[in-house]
């Protein structure tokens, strides 16, 4: 057996490695955000966020990224609303209407877990095929359909996790008042309300940040879509397409888009943290 001294040294070395890893992992976040801030800040201006790009796609030097900002907001909001409308009833059905631990509920939850892991490029490929089949061209609508499919599992899983945290006794006392299952569900939703907003925000964050799903389905345009069947730009697409441009001004639009997207994501994360704290307090 090694002496105590050696053993304690081992402990110290191990701890050093752990600290180093923790530092690297956390540091990577600051690295990424820092890089984007460094590159994006010089280009961020009121003109940039309030104007459409001018002078032609990929080569035009003038204008801003309003098309991408609004396109992203349209697409992500529509998809999130649809996913919420579809996803919340599903989680309620799984927890309130089905018996706990029944085969169907376990199977469904497993499938949603898996769907959550399916990469968005596969959703995109499927969405594209559906669109070709129905003769829909790459458009806002196509993007919305794909992203809705992508975000439903997020809503279902998060709300399901939340419903799991509701004590069974709360359901029982509500039922004891003679409430139907639907009325019980409404009470449960009230109970997890802050958490439901978290789920919606998470879905929105995923929806607004996704590229692979919309790359094939929503097209890209320098203009704002007037109708839902017109192609639309999104921030991630604007970054993806313009980052490799040889023209510095166009590249600048990509940096600015990255910065705007980062800010939106950070706001969403802050809101979710706030809501999570509120949900904790809610539960006493």
């Amino acid at each position: 057996m090694a002496s105590v001294k050696v053993r304690l040294w081992k402990e110290r070395i191990a701890k050093g490695f752990m600290l180093l890893s923790g530092f690297l992992v956390t540091g990577s976040l600051f690295f990424i955000v820092g890089t984007i801030l460094y590159k994006g800040l010089p280009y961020l201006s009121w003109e940039m966020v309030s104007q459409l790009p001018k002078g032609g796609f990929y080569i035009g030097k003038e204008g801003g990224i309003l098309n991408a900002i609004l396109g992203s907001l349209y697409l992500a909001s529509a998809a999130t609303i649809l996913a919420t409308i579809i996803g919340i009833p599903i989680s309620i059905f799984l927890t309130v209407y089905l018996k706990q631990g029944s085969f169907l509920s376990r199977l469904s939850k497993l499938i949603y877990d898996i769907l959550y892991g399916i990469p968005s490029i596969v959703y995109g490929a499927i969405g594209f095929s559906i669109m070709v089949y129905f003769g829909i061209r790459a458009s806002l609508l196509g993007g919305i359909i794909t992203i809705t499919l992508l975000t439903i599992p997020i809503v279902v899983r998060t709300v399901d996790e939340l419903l799991k945290t509701v004590p069974a006794d709360l359901r029982h006392v509500t039922q004891s008042l003679g409430a139907t299952r639907w009325e019980v569900a409404k009470v449960l939703l009230l109970f997890i309300k802050p958490g439901v907003f978290t789920a919606i925000l998470l879905a929105f964050g995923r929806a607004i940040g996704d590229v692979a799903g919309v790359l094939l389905t929503s097209g890209f345009s320098d203009n704002l879509p007037k109708y839902i069947d017109e192609p639309a730009a999104t921030l991630p697409l604007a970054i993806f397409f313009q980052l490799s441009s040889p023209i510095p001004e166009v590249q600048g639009r990509a940096y600015a888009s990255a910065l705007v997207l980062t800010i939106i994501i950070l706001i969403i994360v802050l809101c979710t943290q706030y809501l999570a704290a509120k949900q904790k307090k809610h539960k006493m």
């Binding site: 990424i32 890089t35 984007i36 998470l202 940040g209 997207l261 980062t262 994501i265 994360v269």
Partner: peptide, 13 residues
């Protein structure tokens, strides 16, 4: 926060 960052931002980095 790291989990919430969209892939394209990782790409930019």
């Amino acid at each position: 926060v790291l989990a919430a960052l969209p892939p394209v931002l990782y790409g930019v980095w």
